[in-house]
Write a protein that binds this DNA or RNA. Structure first.
Lengths: 206, 206
DNA sequence: TCGTAGGTAAAACGGGCGTTTGAATGCTAC
DNA sequence: GTAGCATTCAAACGCCCGTTTTACCTACGA
């Protein structure tokens, strides 16, 4: 059968992403995932080894691209001489917002990300830190340079809050419907503006 | 035996709160809960009817008190003539922060709350909206009065982001250890200041 | 003192879980 | 064409799930 365009692995990843977003990692079973992917149950353990590894690969598939876009946007922002807080925030937000408003499964993935944030799952945190920690480090350094009056601890706090707030907000963007008469592009730009202004004001607060 | 000070119901609620915070609603089983509570497995269904209802009661036990404190703090803030944004935010944040830094299970509960926020569980959302929607309405009205330049939609956005950010942040407070040489009271006050300043700046952003 | 109601206990219910197995299938290179 | 490999498949593995059942204990009012 397998008449779809995508490979078994890709269909499993897509179905897993949707179901993890809706039901959580523990709440979505491999039987649900493989049924949604139109794939045999054993395919998950054949291609991914275990459920936990499947979870990791769901993250890797999106985060490789997302973080590449973020670093690229950060480099472009830093290349400009007068780059300010808002430009750094835009570099962080725009790639994720593009993902969350994507026609593909990206919206689901941002909700998965928000779940992971709330879960405090140690194994997952280690995986994310090992694979993508350098991205947050680069943003942290760029923010630190532009917020010299904040001591290290205070900056850490605020970036943590900002990251949580943005993750949560972007997870919601996929769910909340836009007003009629607004194109998706307009909606996306206005959303990004909201988030950037909000976060910048929070970071700059005395 | 039941040699503990607390009733079977209370011990189940406490153990469920801890395990839901750590493992999630789907991830924590009633066998784990009843074992941690030192109670027979059947006690959950006897006292609560079902797992889903147990989840609801875990929320009710804390939210009745939390929202009463929030409304009380809001009334006190509104009674003062010059009450501003920061006072409203303090009324919202302080009761939750007290809970999250509580010696009892409050810290776990705030993490449960953050999970519920990320889950978008329909049944749970309905329960929370039915039982505690009026609290958010009162805060919303108070904020609207102090932010007349924001249109309805914009205010809705920002309060949503603020609520999400604060929920995330407070869930983290219970996890992050305070610096040595800082009393818990100092830590609490500084944390509240951070959150209030951050949120106020975000709400006031042009 | 007995009957009864409220609570606790152990055991079992059917079913879903993640994972493994071993045979069947498709595909590529010789 | 056939050997060899990668993939798919149905079936089963043992285990844990939420819930129910049935019996037992205990306390208290009649």
């Amino acid at each position: 059968m397998n008449s779809q365009h995508f490979s078994t692995k890709e269909r499993i990843l897509g179905a897993a992403e949707q179901l993890f977003a809706r039901l959580g990692f523990a709440g979505a079973s491999l039987r649900q995932v493989t049924a949604a992917a139109n794939v045999n149950l054993a395919a998950v353990n054949y291609h991914f080894g275990s459920k936990e590894n499947l979870i990791n690969e769901v993250f890797r598939r999106r985060l490789d691209e997302l973080n590449a876009h973020r670093l690229q946007a950060l480099d472009q922002a830093l290349a400009r001489p007068g780059a300010g807080l808002e430009d750094l925030l835009a570099a962080f937000i725009h790639p994720a917002l593009d993902l969350s408003l994507d026609r593909g499964g990206g919206g689901a993935f941002v909700r998965v990300l928000a779940r992971a944030y709330a879960e405090h799952n140690d194994a997952l945190r280690k995986f994310l830190s090992d694979n993508y920690g350098h991205v947050m480090k680069r943003f942290h350094a760029a923010f630190a340079q532009r917020l010299p009056d904040l001591d290290k601890e205070e900056l850490y706090w605020r970036l943590d809050i900002v990251a949580g707030a943005l993750t949560y907000a972007m997870a919601d963007f996929g769910v909340i419907k836009r007003k009629s008469g607004v194109t998706e592009q307009q909606h996306r730009e206005r959303s990004a503006e909201h988030l950037i202004r909000f976060a910048a004001a929070g970071l700059r607060a005395p």
